[in-house]
Design a protein around this nucleic acid. Structure first.
Lengths: 208, 208
DNA sequence: TAATTCTTGTGAAATCCTTCACAGCGTTAC
DNA sequence: GTAACGCTGTGAAGGATTTCACAAGAATTA
């Protein structure tokens, strides 16, 4: 129904809408949202079409109503639980950012194979040993996994997660994961992104 | 010339090619690369068209030659220097991953406003105080910046970097940066990615 | 009241990206 | 020798996404 890209942008719009709301703005025009989100007004209107919420030609869109409508699309009413595997610097950064932030999408457990890190609570999230991974996923009905382990361990972790019933993976490891076709995987490939930036930084310089 | 997406995939192919090379494989067919990179054989061949390097119908592509050709496109012959700003967990994770990894794309300085973190060397990279940011960028001819500071500080950092002549930014802060149109920005938006994963994890479950 | 000026919502066009399909060609099999 | 095979390179088709462009409509102004 809604494309990958549209869903991504809705998430971005939502962040902007929250900050508009916080600053007391009640209405917003598509071109304002577009400027804040680096897009075109037409793009914004297209994206907002997938929400039921409709705007008025005179005041634009109602901010509260938009936030509501985006939530209706992006959030599960009953909430979704997330597990993070790999408590290195990256894992901690993600934990620090997410724990307690979204009520409908909460990281409820973190895992590491290093016993030193286990049995603690990092950023308000219990850290558990790796061998309890599958069991905990099942017990806590966790639907989404975040993989922040080194490349070599990623596939094994992914296997365990999928087998335990996780339906979506956010993968930071620089490997392509092999998972059942029913599982949605999103890769965050920092090397690739950096190489892209370096390439285009050079192109711009060359005048192209 | 070559699109954004193609450049990204070339970077991914390169990683795969390195591992093929390490495992002693001398030649590779487009369909093999495609399987490893989660793409189609046609896609791979299209992408490889932008390289000069040509394959043979009988042995496919020469791995060494491909690596060479990809480097010719992605790497600057004289190398490119990168600065990282914001030595939190995320910054350290990126440093740990990159320092000493790519000869042609090296993080040569890291910055933080916390004096505790400054004057040390993290992962082999000198940490400098924030107020020397502009000066150091210019002195070391740094072309690319990585922003791993909190959202509130990102724009100011971006301004300083751009003013000092950086032409590309890799931005981890969850804000859209306002930069001159000659500067290429790539955002890594973890919240957006996680929300996307959660959404599609749910869709799959619903049977769509 | 009527004209003007904003906007939204959305078909239609345009653009970008991916996939198809096949000619061309070494190599192998017989 | 020649037929059959499997791959590359690429024009052309197909699909997806973005942008254009304009009808419709509410406030504002004269």
């Amino acid at each position: 129904m809604a494309s990958d890209k549209t869903i991504g942008r809705l998430s971005r719009y939502r962040r902007i809408l929250y900050s508009l709301q916080a600053s007391g703005k009640a209405n917003v025009y598509s071109h304002e949202l577009a400027r804040l989100a680096r897009g075109t007004a037409a793009q914004v209107r297209r994206d907002l079409m997938v929400l039921g919420c409709t705007g008025s030609p005179t005041h634009g869109y109602d901010v509260d109503c938009l936030i509501e409508s985006v939530a209706q699309v992006l959030d599960a009413p009953e909430g979704q639980r997330v597990a993070l595997v790999g408590i290195g610097n990256l894992g901690r950064a993600v934990l620090a950012y997410f724990v307690g932030r979204r009520p409908k999408l909460s990281i409820v457990a973190a895992f590491d194979k290093d016993p030193q890190k286990v049995e603690r609570v990092t950023h308000g999230c219990p850290c558990l040993p790796m061998d309890s991974l599958g069991k905990t996923i099942r017990e806590k009905c966790i639907e989404v996994g975040i993989i922040t382990v080194p490349a070599g361990a990623a596939q094994e972790v992914a296997d365990t997660l999928c087998e335990a019933g996780v339906m979506g993976l956010l993968n930071f490891a620089p490997v392509r994961l092999w998972v059942p076709s029913t599982v949605y995987v999103e890769d965050i490939d920092v090397t690739m992104s950096l190489e892209k930036v370096a390439f285009f930084a050079r192109q711009v310089k060359a005048g192209a």
